[in-house]
Computed example of a mutant assay.
Amino acid sequence: MIIVTTEFVPGKEIKELKGFVKGNTIQSKHIGKDILAGLRTIVGGEITEYTEMMDEARQKAIGRMVDEAKGLGANAIIGMKLQSAAVMQNASEIIAYGTAVVVE
């Protein structure tokens, strides 16, 4: 699956528009890792527990978007975007979305 943030795929021609596709997930960290992350805010530095959580969430959301696009018969997604939002304390949603197309 080709995924681009642009409205076209360089060197390819869009043959068919399949439509809007998206994938999302809401992730939270284990309480033990939340405690470690809280301690890290005191001393400063990267909060690796949350970096890992957000990376995992992005991969899940993109994977779900790709599955939806494949289900429509697409072989590419153009205009892909990622968005995140806090849905409650210590839990974040990631959504990946774009336009599923067939390119040649």
Rank of each mutant, 00 (worst) to 15 (best):
I2E: 07
I3E: 04
I3P: 06
V4E: 08
T5S: 15
T5F: 07
T5I: 07
E7F: 03
E7D: 15
E7V: 04
E13N: 09
E13M: 04
E16F: 06
L17C: 05
K18V: 04
K18G: 05
K18E: 02
F20M: 10
F20T: 12
F20E: 13
V21E: 02
K22R: 14
G23K: 01
N24P: 06
N24F: 15
T25S: 05
I26P: 00
S28A: 09
H30C: 06
H30Y: 09
H30A: 12
I31H: 12
G32Q: 08
G32Y: 13
D34Y: 10
D34I: 15
L36H: 08
L36P: 00
A37M: 06
A37S: 09
G38F: 07
L39T: 05
L39H: 08
L39Y: 12
R40F: 08
I42S: 09
G44S: 05
G45Y: 04
G45A: 03
E46G: 14
E46V: 14
E46M: 10
E46P: 15
I47Q: 03
E49P: 01
E49D: 06
Y50K: 09
Y50S: 05
E52T: 09
E52R: 10
M53V: 05
M54A: 04
D55R: 13
E56H: 10
E56T: 12
A57I: 01
Q59G: 10
K60G: 03
K60F: 12
A61M: 07
I62Q: 04
G63T: 03
G63W: 01
G63N: 06
M65R: 01
V66F: 02
V66I: 14
K70E: 14
K70H: 07
L72H: 03
G73R: 03
G73P: 10
A74Q: 02
A74Y: 03
A76I: 00
I78C: 06
G79D: 13
G79Y: 06
M80K: 09
M80I: 05
M80H: 10
K81T: 08
Q83M: 12
S84I: 11
A85R: 15
A85Y: 10
A85Q: 14
A86K: 13
M88K: 11
M88Q: 14
Q89G: 09
Q89E: 13
Q89D: 13
A91N: 05
E93M: 11
E93K: 13
I95S: 08
A96Q: 01
A96G: 04
A96T: 02
Y97C: 07
Y97N: 09
G98S: 07
G98R: 00
T99A: 11
V101K: 05
V103D: 05
E104H: 06
E104C: 03
